[in-house]
Write a protein that binds this DNA or RNA. Structure first.
Length: 565
RNA sequence: GCGCCCGUAGCUCAGCGGAUAGAGCGUCAGGUUGCGGACCUGAAGGCCGUGAGUUCGAGUCUCGCCGGGCGCGCCA
């Protein structure tokens, strides 16, 4: 349990017992008021504060400070009764009616001990601790068609999707990372025709692909691939055969690029497989049975307007071929057939127009539309020396993801995307990003980790080891230790918030604050002091818990925590 | 025209309806007889685009307006 939840329950109990004892009036309207506690911005206001007295003022017809005073007395009574195991050390009514709460030393000590007892689990949520833990979630992201290497344009989705997956996993959810692509469309033929043209020394066709990678493929193309297309193969058959080969080669390259980012996919699904395995037909059948389909102008339509869309959507074109949307709904059936409770799609902002139709189709097929969620990523504008870099895969003018990483490094790039909301547009000037890379906050946090690792090594050389437990030592009663411990103990709350909000900005903020708190502690308190072995051992324990928290916060973002740098 | 997203310090961005709006970079002024100076301390810098509304309380919620981006195919 997080400290926040323990404190929240204590306030809840105080409210219940004060009401039962008649110290607060009981009013039916008060039932709708839930007890919430938060971290005050100002540390003078304590470790936690609750606004419940302000919320109860109207239903109870009492002044907020008076309610706060009653709750404060009740909390003090409960703390006395709990003795040394109490979580709350003191409570006071303050300001317009807040109840400010201060944590006991014992509560802090036990959190530090918990972090060190099981470092792997520290910061991960207990199963069943939140509504969503245990949920089976599919996160589909990147999903670029394999007609060329991943570009910086794909970077946003790759990082946002992976970061989201990591945060959900830390929150106790079962995540499948999924990549969806088309390996049988006309683009594959065009890619093949482009490779063949270059191989034969001709110009790339009008609708073909350019770029160095196409020339590379032409050079590497084995004769067997061409021959396998048939001795008398026409240009069309040859283009398809070569296209399939090239497409698979590119897909392998994409997987390798993603692996370099620390992104690994569990499932790769092709659009063709959804048709081959009958999921598209199954989706059509469901919609037809529900009366959500009609024929018009020779095409088959989904009545999306019945669910609030601004127009109906074509599933089967008048020439008999299927739309991309038809594959989408087949994919819905396929995903739900695998038992997922929740589907998340990471899409670029330009796809927002297709959100409604997919969720509408899910509802029409009898699924919970709220189980289908689209996260739209904002635009990334890449600049070089203030000049915009325009990119086109067909023209071959783009920066690859690999090139970006070679310049920035995986850790810096991950931090960059993790510290910003998924849906905000942002400008990245590559020259500035490179120049500032050593000033990047990620290095500040990593430095704190490396510094602690160094201290622990120094301590070992001096024959000092961290104390097994801080419980009962009183080390955290005040001073620099208490301040640092409060930051360390917060990690589980940070993870819970990240999992709930499905965002990582809070994690980067926390990691920076924790590093700052450590650097301040380092300044004020000497850790390794052979003349005071007991205190050294205790401070080493606290510092070790700090190291674990830094490593786990960074790990949550897929960023390394170096022992030295 | 309709719809979605964005607008917070010079720059890049944080900010669960709560108390005096924050961080990094940049600028300016300082700091080490000890465990890593990739560090620390301090300063300057804000009508939170704008106007109303809801609320005990709004950067946060609602509506209008202004500015920027994107979308409105039997394309993928």
């Amino acid at each position: 349990m997080t400290l926040r939840e323990a404190v929240r329950r204590a306030v809840e109990d105080a409210l219940a017992s004060a009401t039962a004892a008649g110290r607060l009036p009981s009013a039916p309207e008060a039932a709708g008021v839930t007890v919430e506690v938060g971290r005050p911005a100002n540390q003078e206001h304590g470790d936690f504060a609750s606004n419940v007295a302000l919320r109860l003022a109207r239903p109870l017809r009492m002044a907020p400070p008076a309610i706060a005073a009653v709750l404060t007395e009740e909390l003090a009574r409960a703390a006395d009764a709990a003795g040394p195991d109490r979580v709350i050390a003191s409570a006071e009514a303050a300001g317009p009616g807040f109840v400010n709460l201060r944590l006991s030393d014992a509560a802090l000590e036990s959190m530090i001990d918990r972090a060190r007892r099981d470092p792997e689990e520290w910061g991960r949520l207990d199963p069943g601790s939140t509504e969503r833990s245990g949920r089976k979630v599919n996160v589909e992201f990147v999903s670029a068609n394999p007609t060329g290497p991943l570009t910086v344009g794909n970077a946003r989705g790759a990082f946002v999707g992976d970061l989201l997956a990591r945060v959900l996993e830390a929150g106790g959810q079962q995540v499948t990372r999924e990549y969806y692509f088309n390996d049988s469309g006309a683009q594959v033929r065009n890619l093949g025709a482009s490779v063949v043209a270059l191989r034969e020394g001709r110009d790339v066709p009008e609708d073909g692909y350019r770029g160095d990678y196409v020339a590379d493929l032409a050079r590497e193309l084995p004769d067997e691939v061409v021959e396998a297309a048939g001795v008398d193969a026409d240009d069309e058959a040859e283009a398809w055969a070569v296209g399939r080969w090239a497409s698979e080669r590119i897909r392998e390259g994409i997987a390798a690029s993603l692996a370099r980012l620390g992104v690994r996919f569990d499932v790769w699904t092709t659009e063709a497989s959804l048709h081959d395995r009958g999921f598209v037909a199954e989706a059509m059948r469901r919609l037809r049975e529900g009366g959500h389909i009609y024929e018009q102008d020779g095409a088959t339509w989904f009545r999306s307007t019945a669910f609030g869309d601004d127009k109906d959507r074509v599933l089967i074109k008048s020439d008999g071929s299927m739309t991309y949307f038809a594959s989408d709904i087949g994919y819905l059936v396929e995903k739900f057939s695998r038992g997922f409770d929740h589907l998340i799609y990471i899409w670029g902002a330009d796809h927002h127009g297709t959100v409604a139709r997919v969720r509408n189709a899910a509802e029409a097929m009898g699924y919970d539309r709220n189980a289908v969620e689209m996260i739209l990523t904002g635009w990334v504008h890449f600049l070089e020396g203030g000049r915009e870099l325009s990119m086109s895969k067909r023209a071959g003018t783009f920066i690859t993801l690999d090139e970006l990483l070679a310049e920035l490094g995986v850790d810096a790039a991950r931090w960059y995307f993790a510290s910003r909301g998924a849906n905000v547009n942002m400008d990245v000037d590559l020259e500035v990003a490179k120049k500032q890379s050593s000033e990047n906050p990620v290095y500040y946090v990593q430095y704190a980790h490396a510094r602690i690792a160094s201290i622990l090594r120094k301590a070992a050389e001096a024959g000092l080891a961290p104390a097994a437990e801080l419980r009962g030592t009183g080390l955290l009663a005040g001073g620099p230790e208490g301040t640092l411990a409060r930051f360390v103990a917060r990690l589980p709350e940070v993870v819970e918030d990240a999992a709930t909000a499905q965002e990582t900005q809070g994690v980067t903020t926390y990691a920076t604050e924790l590093a700052t708190a450590f650097h301040a502690f380092y300044r004020d308190a000497r850790v390794v002091d052979p003349d005071a072995p007991d205190r050294s051992a205790q401070r080493l324990a606290l510092v070790d818990a700090t190291r674990i928290s830094l490593a786990n916060a960074l790990g949550l973002l897929g960023i390394s925590a170096p022992e030295s740098m």
